[in-house]
């Protein structure tokens, strides 16, 4: 999983950093899908990482999606990954989880490495995942049939693979947003923000 990152014991390569980010996205998105009840709980199986037990969906679509994202993260063309939760009945967007990506350090260098210890990065990721898990406490209840979509906000010069299509940015009316913690590999900086429709 993070073998590429650990190959050079003291340094994390660009690809390794992208993989760390993708791992985080995988766990984070699955955690959100479970927490927000978008899939039935039976379709999840537990997995342990970052010292946390995270329930992972058996749906392969997320992995497929992440494989494409990985390449783009290495190319530094991704601005943001958004998990959009939509009410199926009214097509109203109920929630949007933004995973904002920032690129740190020498952006032009393809062989960029980071000296940040992996353990520290994992601790940071764990903190974010904990926050995601506890966000259920204040997010409004999704008492309607909802489904989700994952959108990637890229820079304009991106080759679109097959089975991918252009999407509309998801805007939420009367929204409120909560910023989660950020973590950084010193190559990629990931900021997690949840924006949700305010009921009041």
């Amino acid at each position: 999983m993070t073998t590429a990152a650990q190959k050079n014991k003291s340094a994390i390569t660009l690809k390794g950093s992208a993989e760390i980010v993708c791992d985080y996205l995988n766990y984070g998105i699955n955690s959100i899908l479970f927490q927000r009840g978008l899939y039935p709980p039976e379709s999840f199986k537990s997995d342990e990482n970052y010292g946390l037990t995270i329930l992972m969906s058996t749906d392969n679509k997320i992995k497929e999606f992440l494989s494409t994202t990985l390449g783009w993260l290495v190319d530094r063309t991704v601005n943001k990954v958004a998990l959009v939760i939509t009410n199926v009945k009214t097509l109203e967007i109920m929630e949007r989880w933004d995973f904002n990506v920032e690129y740190e350090g020498d952006v032009a260098n393809g062989e960029q490495t980071s000296e940040k210890p992996l353990k520290q990065i994992k601790n940071e990721i764990r903190d974010v995942l904990k926050q995601i898990a506890s966000s259920v406490a204040y997010l409004p209840l999704l008492d309607c049939l909802c489904s989700f979509d994952i959108q990637i906000y890229t820079k304009s010069d991106v080759e679109l693979p097959a089975e991918w299509a252009e999407a509309e940015p998801a805007n939420i009316k009367n929204a409120q947003s909560v910023k989660m913690r950020t973590f950084s590999t010193n190559i990629h900086k990931m900021e997690t923000v949840v924006t949700y429709k305010n009921d009041d």
Binding site: K61, Q151, Y153, P169, N171, I172, N174, T195
Partner: peptide, 17 residues
């Protein structure tokens, strides 16, 4: 509430959930 494109594009899987 409003999502900013920042001059890029938005993509998603054609057969998303």
């Amino acid at each position: 509430g409003h999502d900013t494109l920042q001059g890029g594009q938005v993509f998603h899987l054609a057969n998303n959930p």
